[in-house]
Amino acid sequence: MPLTLPTRWRWQPGWRWVPDIGAGERARFRVVLLDEFQDTSEAQLVLLRSLFAAGDSGVP
């Protein structure tokens, strides 16, 4: 499932941090390929980390 991320991010009012989303996504996708990674912004890196690098428990 290809996914394009916007480059600029701002935390919007009404957004809520849901810790379990990462676990859900990791269960859905066994393999993740990040292309053109040199063009990743800091915010995208944080997002990708929180989705696919499972905190202390290591990588999916």
């Binding site: 480059t7 600029r8 393999v31 993740v32 390929l33 990040l34 292309d35 053109e36 990674f37 040199q38 063009d39 990743t40 912004s41 800091e42 915010a43 995208q44 890196l45 696919f52 690098a53 990588v59 999916p60």
Partner: peptide
């Protein structure tokens, strides 16, 4: 989890891409 990239092709610094990711 695999990331593919070429640091020599990082041309989007002007719109927020970080050189260190």
């Amino acid at each position: 989890m695999t990331a593919v990239g070429d640091p020599n092709q990082s041309i989007y610094g002007w719109r927020g891409a970080s050189a260190t990711t």
